[in-house]
């Protein structure tokens, strides 16, 4: 019984880590994307970072963060957020740039300020594509969060690692399976929830 409660708690922590990191990443990515779309010189840089960033092995990044942030949730949050930003950033840049210029000019021409135009016209129109980035990012982050167990981060990753370390032991396979299947199931549930969120937050006027 205790074991089951531990697994549930681990799953909860895993999801909680991912959700919070992705939320943080979404805000960071949106702000960066706004900056990038305002300063065209930054676009190349942003693309390069999001492309190169994804090739960085997460093990390496965690190892790099270890001396800076110690072990525990700190480096786990930093690593998951770092990876989570990348797909959202890329989508957000494309989505914000994809909003029809004439609509933005028309908003300004009607007397909407820069912030109002961004939040009331550009963001809602870019939202479906940004949300698609958030979904990709969430899936990826579920996996990255599992690897964060290497720095003793919270979540289900611990089951996978302890299973792999004890290969040959009676419970080794069982432990690794619990971790893996748990991560996959939770990822599916999260994705469904995001899909629902998309339905609820996308205007009927632009829903596909």
């Amino acid at each position: 019984m205790q074991e089951r409660a531990d697994i549930v708690y681990g799953g909860y922590q895993h999801v909680s880590l991912v959700v919070q990191c992705v939320a943080l990443a979404a805000v960071i990515a949106f702000l960066l994307a706004v900056l990038v779309t305002r300063v065209p010189a930054l676009e190349g840089l942003a693309n390069a970072v999001s492309a190169i960033g994804l090739t960085l092995p997460s093990f390496a990044l965690l190892g790099f963060l270890l001396p800076l942030l110690g072990i525990g949730p700190g480096p786990a949050v930093a690593a998951v957020t770092f990876y989570a930003v990348l797909p959202i950033l890329r989508n957000a840049v494309v989505a914000l740039q994809g909003v029809d210029r004439t609509l933005l000019e028309s908003a300004r021409g009607m007397g909407m300020g820069a912030v109002a135009t961004l939040l009331r016209v550009q963001l809602p129109l870019a939202w479906p594509v940004i949300l698609a980035g958030i979904r990709t990012s969430t899936q990826m982050s579920m996996g990255v969060a599992a690897i964060a167990a290497v720095v003793l981060g919270p979540g289900l990753g611990g089951y996978i690692f302890s299973g792999l370390e004890q290969i040959g032991n009676a419970n080794a396979l069982y432990s690794a399976l619990v971790g893996t299947i748990g991560v996959v199931l939770l990822a599916l549930v999260l994705d469904a929830l995001l899909l629902l969120l998309g339905r609820l937050t996308t205007s009927k006027g632009i829903r596909a």
């Binding site: 609509l103 028309s106 908003a107 021409g109 016209v121 809602p124 129109l125 205007s203 006027g205 632009i206």
Partner: peptide
């Protein structure tokens, strides 16, 4: 300010 095609915001009624 009225421009070609109306330039309505598609996400608003």
């Amino acid at each position: 300010y009225v421009i070609q095609g109306g330039s309505l915001f598609p996400h608003m009624t």
